[in-house]
Design a protein around this nucleic acid. Structure first.
Ligand SMILES: [Mn+2]
Ligand SMILES: [Mn+2]
Ligand SMILES: [Zn+2]
Ligand SMILES: [Zn+2]
Lengths: 148, 148
DNA sequence: TTCTAAATTTAGAATTATTATAAATAAAAT
DNA sequence: ATTTTATTTATAATAATTCTAAATTTAGAA
């Protein structure tokens, strides 16, 4: 046995890019959370541990990782900020338009769709953004009691 | 027989809103095209026929229609503009990141996912954004011949 | 037909997420 | 060491969208 867990970040070096502390920290944060954070949120979380971090670096890194297919950009979720997801396996993301959180929903059907689309479209499919939106249980309760 | 095709725009008046010429034209344009246009594109198309039209009205109307569930906001497609879709039935949208066009893909699986998500999540599902992205056949050809 | 109040449109200003720029730093190659 | 290349950083610029307030339209009452 050589190495049991080859990190997707290895792809960086294969592409002639460097595995810097900033890139490592940003990717590690993304894999360790299930909150689908935005660039600004990542920046705020990492700033204490990483005094000199720049927001531009966060954006640069996220774009790099997306282009390498290591992470997915999910787009906005009621807010107007792009949310990122280190889980690139086919799954359903479910966003609450009221509190702007995104959770994952297990679904066996998504993988079938992925194949269906790849085969019947003529497109070269690079990624998927399966995002349902609505109101989470907590925010539903607040909605049903509108004002007061 | 009273009326065979009740337009979704009837919902406007039921919600106490007015069915203005601008709203009617914007919705008609969306239903008659399959191009999933942006607010700016809708504005440019309607400006000749509608001299006094304002871009703010296009944004206002699109937001109104989205909130009523009459149309869907698909989000960006490689560009950074929100694309809109008058087809609210469950279907797969497929975006080309190179030319920023979006086409529809028929899929029976999407409807099942919609139910699956609604039942197992506890969310009140208001809409779906099923968007795959990649390269369309035309842009694939251009990619394989990178420079020159 | 006026009159009045609410809804809507409009032009333009403001906001803000993201991208671009250019200098400083760090790492790799020679 | 020196040179080159990649990267980070601070900051400015961009541009999609939203906000604001005045003008216009509409529906209904008088
Ligand atoms: Mn996810
Ligand atoms: Mn569509
Ligand atoms: Zn919520
Ligand atoms: Zn294309």
């Amino acid at each position: 046995m050589v190495n049991s867990t080859p990190s997707p970040l290895q792809n960086l070096q294969q592409a002639g890019l460097r595995l810097t502390p900033q890139r490592e920290a940003i990717y590690a944060l993304l894999t360790e959370t299930d909150s689908h954070p935005t660039a600004a949120e990542i920046y705020e979380i990492l700033k204490p541990r990483f005094a000199s971090l720049s927001l531009a670096t966060v954006y640069n890194t996220l774009e790099t990782l997306v282009n390498l297919g290591i992470i997915n950009a999910l787009g906005g979720a009621g807010d107007s900020q792009t949310h990122y997801d280190a889980d690139t396996s086919p799954h359903v993301n479910l966003a609450c338009l009221a509190c702007n959180t995104i959770v994952d929903i297990p679904s066996t059907l998504v993988q079938e769709i992925h194949q269906e689309v790849s085969q019947n479209s003529g497109f070269k499919v690079l990624g998927a953004r399966v995002l349902y939106y609505g109101l989470c249980p907590t925010c539903q309760a607040k909605e049903t009691t509108p004002n007061r």
